[in-house]
Write a protein that binds this DNA or RNA. Structure first.
Length: 624
RNA sequence: GGCCCGGUGGUGUAGCGGCUAACACGCGGCCCUGUCAAGGCCGAGAUCGUGGGUUCGAAUCCCAUCCGGGUCGCCA
């Protein structure tokens, strides 16, 4: 990312167009070095700078201007005695005006060096200067400090993106993507573009639809991912494909979900799980080492079976930077007198908990906060047990703990509970009882919350892990049918095909996820490459022969023409860059022009109504 | 669709039944030759998201609604 000439003047040509405006001699380049690149080595050189006025400090006589460009900023000194004309220009300059300066790079006088600036050892004595374009007073300061309302930032995204924070994020994103391309190119992968206008397949997420002008009543869909296309490329014999692909899903937004997002889409032929996992581990490790060396991670990436992840963390994308593992105490709870426990266990639910280290002193108010936290996630309540400090747990009695359980359990049950939860004296046990799904959801997020409160997650650590051995199907109780856990193209383990119709819930899929710090960064699988097996899966999911041919004929037919065994993975670029960024709070911070939670683009005002003519041409009518 | 948080000069906040609506930054003017979030003095700028209601009186209480954010559902 170093410019063409760090250490010597770099020349930025403006397409060779002679620029002649407000005093600049015709044929002269507008700038011949970046503001942010000036160093001691440039002292004595005459330079031409152009950029934005970051700040102006007017001493009446001397005027200091911090001139900023994409590489950083440098202090320019305007001295009314040395160059009265330039000084007169500087008097007009205001924040965010665009200006050019011609002057000499000088070492700063003793005692005026600014160690906080990369260019802080030098300054530029302005000889000539001019205004390239004035600016209205911006709606918020580019110099940051205060956090600006995000809606305002979005409305003026072109100003928001001027901040060093956002430019860093965009540059980081560029570095990551460039690195991915180089890495995969070096390993024989071919980047292939796939269409944005494809066929709607109402599986998984809701499609964005595009009406056809030529075919009344017919619609294209924007791809939720290039899944089928990349499988067809495998049938086509590409063997190693990737794409930095834009994907679209018309579902509700989150901090880590936008309606359009970017995936590293990748597929290989003649591979098994291990080939993909090793490639991905090498790729992600390489990205972090080369692009963000400040961050640490452990290798090899641990493999975590899905069942273990759910049992120990209550989620399939745990933050592994800290422990605080969940303990299942359903069996202990079922023997207690405590009504909440009895009710939960007798109705087939679970009781699980986490021991919060050193939190026995939590106030009533703090416990109430945590209770509301789990209630907001569907739990009925939170049962706490405060274990006294400096007391052997093996001889603990119920009189010594602060807990709603105290009256309903025996000393022995209490000791077993503490021991099972790996608790230490001074810990606060946090327990949730109820249906397994609710318990896991509430506790996985409570665990994350406690990690945050206790500052357990090292911000400089990336805890990568592969989650493996996912069930192939999930039972949808509401709809009364099986659904694919990932998608219907995922293959079952070779020896489990016999189970498919007999016991679908027991079939383990050849699916894997890459998780990191509580985010799912990538997910993929070994695919089904035989028509017969693909049809069996589709049938199980409730598709008729005609239905599957109509929706998936293109893939099914292709599988009959020598489809090689293949598999791949898709990784979220937005999430990856967010995790790698020092400042990003959401993926909106690593997307140049993101949308709001209502899927609105506040800068352009999209979506918007269109004219009657446009609608008519598309054979559309708006009904309320 | 549900729940939670927020909306007060340009920006960020304070005010939570009675105020000429406060402070900082920014903005404008004047002074100022070594600052770097420059400094000093002066000044302009808000009918408190919108609409109803309660009250003698509403930024403040109630209801509705819009917008932004978080989250559950949804979505991998």
């Amino acid at each position: 990312m170093k410019g063409p000439g760090l250490g010597c003047p770099s020349v930025e040509r403006r397409g060779g167009v002679p620029y002649n405006r407000r005093g600049l001699p015709r044929g002269t380049l507008l700038k011949n070095i970046a503001c942010g690149e000036l160093r001691k080595g440039h002292v004595g050189q005459r330079v031409q700078l152009a950029g934005w006025v970051h700040r102006r400090r007017d001493h009446g006589g001397l005027i200091f201007i911090d001139l900023r460009d994409s590489r950083g900023l440098v202090q320019v000194v305007f001295n009314p005695e040395r160059s009265p004309e330039a000084h007169r220009v500087a008097q007009q300059l205001r924040a965010e005006w665009v200006a050019w300066v011609e002057g000499e790079v000088a070492e700063r006088p003793q005692g005026t060096v600014n160690p906080n600036l990369a260019t802080g050892e030098v300054e530029v004595y302005a000889g000539q200067a001019g205004v390239l374009n004035p600016s209205k007073t911006p709606p918020f300061e580019i110099g940051e400090e205060a956090e600006v309302d995000e809606a305002l930032r979005m409305q003026y995204r072109f100003l928001d993106l001027r901040t060093a924070r956002m430019q860093k994020n965009l540059i980081l994103r560029h570095r990551v993507v460039k690195h991915i391309r180089d890495f995969l190119d070096a390993r024989g992968f071919v980047e292939v573009e796939t269409p944005i206008l494809i066929k709607s397949t109402p599986e998984g997420a809701r499609d964005y639809l595009v009406p056809s002008r030529v075919h009344p009543g017919h619609f294209y869909a924007l791809p939720q991912s290039p899944q089928q296309l990349k499988q067809l490329l495998m049938v086509a014999g590409l063997e190693r494909y990737f794409q930095i692909a834009r994907c679209f899903r018309d579902e509700d937004l989150r901090a880590d979900r936008q309606p359009e997002f970017t995936q590293l889409d990748l597929e290989m032929s003649f591979v098994e799980e291990e080939d993909i996992l090793q490639l991905i581990e090498a790729l992600y490790a390489d990205i972090v080492e080369k692009v963000v060396p400040r961050l640490r991670f452990r290798q090899p990436f641990p493999r975590l079976p899905y069942q273990d992840a759910m049992a120990r963390y209550g989620t399939d994308k745990p933050d592994l930077r800290f422990g605080l593992e969940l303990a299942d105490v359903t069996d202990l709870a079922s023997t207690s007198e405590f009504q909440v426990f009895r009710a939960a266990t007798q109705s087939g639910g679970a009781v699980k908990g986490v021991a919060a280290p050193g939190c026995a002193g939590y106030s009533r108010r703090q416990i109430e906060e945590l209770t509301q936290f789990v209630q907001a996630r569907g739990a009925k309540g939170l049962i706490t047990v405060a274990l006294p400090e400096g007391r052997q747990l093996q001889t603990l009695t119920v009189e010594e703990v602060r807990s709603p359980l105290a009256r309903s359990v025996t000393d022995e049950q209490l000791r077993q509970l503490a021991s099972r939860m790996g608790a230490a004296p001074g810990d606060l046990l946090l327990l949730v009882a109820g249906p397994v799904g609710v318990v896991n959801l509430a506790l996985s997020q409570l665990r994350q919350e406690m990690g945050r409160r206790l500052d357990l997650a090292d911000p400089n650590l990336l805890a990568f892990a592969f989650v493996v051995d996912f069930p192939l199907f999930e039972w949808n109780a509401e709809e009364g049918r099986w659904e694919p856990m990932h998608h219907m193209f995922t293959s079952a383990r070779p020896h489990q095909w016999g189970l498919l119709e007999k016991d679908p819930g027991a079939v383990i899929g050849r699916h894997y996820d890459l998780v990191c710090n509580g985010y799912e960064l990538a997910g993929g699988s070994i695919r089904i490459h035989e028509r017969e097996k693909q049809e069996r899966v589709m049938r199980l999911l409730g598709h008729t022969q005609e239905g599957m041919q109509q929706k998936f004929g293109q893939l099914l037919d292709a599988l009959e023409y020598g489809a090689p065994p293949h598999g791949g993975i898709a990784g979220g670029i937005d999430r990856l860059v967010m995790v790698l960024s020092e400042s990003a709070q959401s993926i909106r911070d690593v997307i140049a022009f993101p949308k709001t939670q209502n899927a609105v683009d506040l800068l352009f005002g999209a979506p918007s109504p269109v004219t009657q003519e446009q609608l008519k041409e598309l054979h559309l009518q708006v009904v309320e």
